[in-house]
Design a protein around this nucleic acid. Structure first.
Lengths: 176, 176
DNA sequence: GGATAAATTCACAAAAATCAGAATATGTCA
DNA sequence: TGACATATTCTGATTTTTGTGAATTTATCC
């Protein structure tokens, strides 16, 4: 696996994924790690991630927990060891749980301000726009819900790999 | 309108909208201007925007063209004058112009890397994830297409307000 | 053509984000 | 308890982004 990760194509994959995730607010190395984990067939340690991505272990630690926080990486513990392993997320991953929440908040903001606007035209605009943002949010959430259904149907099937997984929560990345 | 914009609630609206747009890569004043235009019942000049938002005119100029570039503000000219007016965008607006394309590229990246992955498990993961991102992309594009259909059905109806509008293109904000 | 107003670009400062490495905290074992 | 390995937090440097004000360009009128 370390050999596979070092391949030039894998590096390009990680760099390109990082570039595509930056518009969603993901720091560059968070995106690179996300891609790295997608390519990993076994859970990896912070030391391995740090070496393979050529970043400081402190940076790997922060980035890993950022990914984990919204379900974009799985954390595994190993009985009798302090070591933590990280592995690829579920198919349901990426920046969408946070995106969905954000869109809901934008829609709510527009709807709640409607009552304070001064003209009927502005009222109508805010109302229509609130609906628009809500529809985008619902469209995303619909796909997420369907994939969540698939994931929970698959839950409980052991993968036979060491170590045992901890469950992710929801998904996005950028604390500010 | 200037009185309405100065109201504390409007400022909170603009600040909150700015906060919600920053995760999409929008600079703070771009988000504030977007909200300001949503609340404006008439097109406004750069001088007015600069005054009302308390930002330098140069910043207003750059931010306005950033919004306009992706359909998040409308530009109006006035015959016999160099003055430019800006007004609220269509309902179909916000940070979505590149979203669909971006998701398509992520899906394509995942699918194309599938052939280079080393194990069946990783191959399957990349394939499934490519499908997931494509579904999100399609869900978003479906809403955008529907709103684009609404907007083009409404096109051509004069709003009776001076000055005449220039057409926006698509929508997002962050050139990098 | 010049005068003037408005918009835009440029240079630089300020602010924010990111990263590496040091320092500290924590978990496991004996 | 201490030793050790690992993870995390903190600090400061570096890089990147954002915004202001000066300078320049552009549009309009006479």
């Amino acid at each position: 696996m370390s050999k596979a990760i070092d391949k030039e194509a894998d590096c390009r994959f990680m760099d390109e994924m990082a570039s595509l995730m930056m518009p969603w607010g993901w720091p560059r190395n968070v995106g690179r790690m996300y891609a790295y984990l997608l390519l990993s067939d076994k859970p990896v340690t912070l030391d391995t991630i740090s070496e393979d991505l050529r970043i400081a272990k402190s940076n790997a630690s922060v980035a890993a927990r950022t990914l984990e926080q919204f379900g974009n990486a799985r954390r595994h513990s190993e009985p009798g060891s302090k070591r933590i392993y990280y592995s690829a997320p579920d198919i349901l991953s990426g920046p969408f749980a946070f995106t969905s929440q954000l869109l809901g908040r934008i829609s709510g903001l527009l709807a709640s301000h409607k009552a304070l606007a001064r003209t009927d035209a502005v009222d109508a605009r805010l109302d229509d726009m609130a609906g628009f943002y809500a529809e985008i949010r619902d469209a995303i959430q619909g796909v997420l819900d369907r994939y969540a259904g698939i994931a929970s149907a698959v839950e409980g099937v052991p993968d036979g790999e060491e170590p045992s997984p901890s469950l992710p929560s929801s998904s996005a990345t950028r604390t500010r």
